[in-house]
């Protein structure tokens, strides 16, 4: 029982980061029907920005906002340079475009920074723990869960209360109908990329804090988690993406604690197979943004 509670807390901490990543993937899928394999590159780019700032002697309190800003700007730049040019293209083209960006960004860092791991100091409290009765809780997990709750609350407020949020939801539901209401497609798509960049930026802070370093391929792993969690949640669904992220985090922790070490290594593979099986047996249930076949 206690072990289960412990796993729950660990899983929520992990899952919170995935939820932020998945939400960013889902937002983009909603407005562009694009499964964004380049999402993790926001973490690569902002990670190097953070590294540069540490070299210049900045502290985490300054680096954290910088990471978020860089992530937003990167997201917008990628949209402008690449995705805006393939808007409305086939899924085939969209997927390969994001796949290409994923490789291009890491190759550019490989070329201009170096292949080696760039380390930076982790904040002192990251490894600290405290106890509640028999439970040992990481300070880090507590902060992650807290910040995620705040970030999600802000995101929900944006989506529910602001005109931009309404426009984004409307465009995700029916793009042409939203345009008929006067919603500008350029603004809403750029807004979606900015929001996605913001969420990835918050996730990046924690990802980098936990890792304490960055590499040219640092984006691959978060990209995978974000895409998987968004898939679990049904891709177009924002609520589903958050739940998908938490579910993925919990699943990883539980599988790791329950299964022998050699099998637990396969968690990602297992999750991937489960999702593939869902697609195979319930293809219409997974993608909520279904496109009816028109004759």
């Amino acid at each position: 029982m206690i072990e289960l509670l412990q796993n729950l807390i660990d899983g929520l901490g992990r899952g919170s980061i995935y939820a932020l990543l998945a939400l960013g993937v889902a937002v983009i899928f909603g407005v562009m029907h694009l499964l964004n394999f380049a999402h993790g590159e926001l973490i690569t780019v902002s990670g190097y920005a953070g590294y540069a700032a540490f070299q210049a002697g900045w502290s985490w309190y300054l680096v954290a906002p910088l990471v978020v800003v860089v992530s937003i700007v990167t997201s917008l730049v990628i949209e402008r340079l690449a995705f805006s040019r393939v808007r409305g293209a086939s899924d085939f083209t969209l997927l390969l475009t994001s796949f290409g960006i994923h490789f291009l960004v890491s190759a550019i860092f490989l070329m201009y920074v170096s292949a080696s791991v760039k380390s930076f100091p982790r904040p002192g409290w990251v490894a600290n723990t405290y106890s509640i009765g028999p439970l040992t809780v990481e300070v880090f997990d507590t902060v992650v869960i807290g910040v995620t709750i705040v970030t999600l609350a802000v995101t929900v407020a944006i989506l529910q209360k602001t005109m931009f949020g309404l426009a984004l939801r409307a465009a995700a539901a029916d793009f042409d109908a939203a345009r008929l209401m006067g919603v500008r497609s350029d603004s809403v798509i750029r807004g979606a990329f900015a929001l996605s960049g913001f969420l990835a930026g918050i996730a990046a802070i924690f990802w980098l804090m936990r890792a304490g370093n960055t590499t040219p391929t640092a984006g691959s792993d978060p990209m995978l988690k974000g895409v998987l969690a968004a898939l679990i949640g049904g891709l177009g669904s924002l609520r589903g993406a958050v739940l998908g992220g938490l579910a993925l985090g919990l699943a990883e922790v539980l599988l790791r604690s329950q299964l022998p070490a050699s099998v637990a290594e396969l968690t990602e593979g297992v999750v991937f197979v489960l999702i593939a099986l869902l697609f195979i047996f319930r293809p219409q249930g997974l993608i909520t943004v279904a496109h009816a076949e028109r004759v």
């Binding site: 393939v86 475009t97 796949f99 290409g100 960006i101 960004v105 190759a107 550019i108 070329m111």
Partner: peptide
Amino acid sequence: DWVFREGLPTVFLGLAMLGFMIWRP
């Protein structure tokens, strides 16, 4: 020198993929 560095082959692949997807899918 800023162009001709290690990693250029992968950059080339990424650019080729993007360029063709954008201009000639």
